[in-house]
Nucleic acid binder design. Structure first.
Lengths: 229, 229
DNA sequence: CGTGTACTTGATTTAGATCAAAAGTAGTGG
DNA sequence: CCACTACTTTTGATCTAAATCAAGTACACG
């Protein structure tokens, strides 16, 4: 167990971190375990998932270079696995009452906010009605995260995508084929997707991002008010 | 704008809070707005939702007495609305670098963790495959939160439930009827559900809670290892 | 007592699951 | 290097759960 030299001075990460390497497919931690550590990805891709009693698997997020995962309080709610061979930086989980101010602000709050954003992205994807919408939104989400000029290296399998989007492998495959047919994307190998018509994909996915349509006005004439007592 | 007398001494909530009352159906804040405040529910029920470009609505959570919502960093990602007439306690959002240690630990970290739990609950529900599984899991989730001896006052409409579970009103209604037919629950009025066979519901919903089935063993013989450099 | 809303229920349609199998890819070992 | 094996991906045919279409029923409110 080699302690990595903390790069103090940048984000003032004063705590020691350990390197951990995991082979493709290996489990990093398992749901139900005591959440003693959290991780940031130095290289490779990680997935988090929940296994249901019936064997069904729900992926809850993919984590790329710089992403952080495993910030569960107390017990891990999800299992983390290596999609590719990964290099991780491991940190001790914070105690409930943080020892120093930095511990709380820098170490836990911002990553937690990110974890929440990730979870909401998952909800957002699952909330789409059709398979085409989900896959389109998925591609756009990845493209946003990895700005590789419109060409995505997927790394995860169709099965991973299916379990992330709540579809079957078959439907994912068919849907991608359909997007190709519609000339929204082209496949440069099964794992390599080039986005051709981003506007078309956005249109298909709905919620082009940033576009916040006006919510349905409530019938109530009286808006809410502040209590006078 | 009346400043509520902070109840110092218990959880050391040293900051001032304001009461806010919202009528049933009123909007508390809207997605896209600057997230200047977060709230805790004193009375009533709140829902958070995302409106998609096509008008489709995805509910992301229900919040009951004692629950906290609106902890989005910077910009609200969701809209919050009053399901019933509600009384809220409003607090100023924390700045990115918290001023004091308590600000970070007590005010943001734990509520954020809860928000994450809530988001994951939503993913969990949406991740279920059949309508019956989702509705059963939904009932169990509510029952867990409101320990009212097996009798749930729903408060939200079928439409809310549908948008929460990613189903239509029709399917929700039909599915509840089916659960009644199967003698898992009884309806004491459309908004009042009595859970009859909790074990049966758990069985149907899958993942009875706490039961963490062993994940699929990775084929790799080599487990992950710690870097020696 | 009528009007509007929420809920339920039936009939039909359809998107995606399931069943089944072929084609592409990668790793292994002779 | 090539054959063999194991897996991943794609595609076709069929089936089904849930959406959609279409009424009805039950309630609350003016």
């Amino acid at each position: 167990m080699i302690t990595l030299c903390a790069r103090d001075g940048e984000a003032a990460s004063s705590r020691s971190a350990q390197l951990r390497r995991c082979q493709k497919g290996a489990q990093i931690y398992s749901q139900g375990e005591l959440a003693t550590c959290w991780y940031s990805v130095l290289r490779g891709i990680v997935r988090t998932c929940r296994y249901h009693a019936d064997g069904h698997r729900q992926l809850t997020g993919f984590y790329y270079e710089g992403d952080v995962f495993g910030l569960d309080g107390g017990i891990y709610q999800e299992t983390a696995e290596a999609v590719t061979t990964v290099t991780l930086e491991r940190r001790k989980a914070f105690r409930s009452p943080p020892v120093t101010s930095e511990d709380a602000s820098e170490a836990s709050e911002i990553p937690l906010q990110r974890a929440l954003t990730r979870a909401r992205e998952c909800i957002f994807l699952l909330g789409h009605r059709t398979a085409a919408q989900r896959v389109a939104a998925f591609f756009l989400a990845i493209a946003e995260r990895l700005p590789a000029q419109g060409c995505l290296q997927l790394a995860m399998t169709r099965s991973d995508i299916a379990d992330y989007l709540g579809l079957t492998v078959h439907t994912v495959s068919r849907t991608i084929s359909e997007l190709v047919r519609r000339k929204l994307v082209v496949l440069e190998g099964p794992q390599r997707v080039r986005l051709i018509d981003v506007a078309g994909l956005r249109d298909l996915a709905g919620e082009a991002g940033g576009d916040l349509s006006a919510p349905i006005a409530s019938r109530q004439s009286d808006e809410d008010h502040y209590a006078a007592a």
